[in-house]
Computed example of a mutant assay.
Amino acid sequence: MNEWPLHDAKNRFSAVVAAAVAGEPQRVTRRGKPAVVVLAVEEYERLRLKEAAVAPSLAEVLLAMPRDDGEFERRPLALRRVDL
Rank of each mutant, 00 (worst) to 15 (best):
A53C: 07
R81M: 14
V37T: 08
L49Y: 10
E73W: 12
E3K: 11
G70H: 00
V37D: 02
L77C: 10
L79G: 07
E60K: 05
A18M: 00
D69R: 04
L63S: 13
L49F: 15
A20Q: 00
L84F: 15
T29E: 08
A20R: 06
R81V: 15
A20M: 02
P56K: 01
D83N: 03
L62F: 09
E60Y: 00
A64E: 08
R80F: 07
R67K: 07
E71H: 01
M1F: 10
E51P: 06
A55D: 00
K50Q: 12
G70D: 11
K50G: 09
A40K: 00
V61W: 08
L84Y: 14
L6Q: 10
H7W: 05
R12S: 14
R27Y: 11
L49C: 08
E71Q: 01
W4V: 03
L84V: 10
R80K: 09
Y44E: 09
R12Y: 08
Y44F: 14
P25G: 13
K33A: 15
P56M: 09
P76C: 13
W4R: 02
E71M: 10
M65F: 01
M65Q: 06
L79V: 10
E24V: 13
A15W: 05
A18S: 02
R75L: 15
E45V: 01
T29M: 06
N2H: 14
R30Q: 04
L58K: 02
V61R: 04
P76A: 15
R12L: 09
Q26K: 00
P5R: 13
R12K: 12
D68S: 08
R67Q: 15
A53N: 03
R81E: 15
V54P: 04
E24P: 04
V54N: 01
D8S: 11
D8C: 00
V21F: 03
R31E: 06
A40V: 01
P34I: 09
A59L: 11
D68T: 07
V37P: 02
R46C: 03
A19I: 06
A18D: 05
A15S: 12
F72N: 05
R27T: 09
D68N: 09
V82E: 14
A55L: 03
R48C: 10
R74W: 13
A53F: 08
L6Y: 08
E51Y: 09
V61K: 03
E51G: 08
K10F: 11
R67L: 15
S57I: 01
E45N: 04
R27H: 06
D83M: 11
E60V: 00
E42R: 07
R30N: 06
V36G: 08
L62Y: 10
R74V: 14
V41F: 06
A18E: 00
R31Y: 05
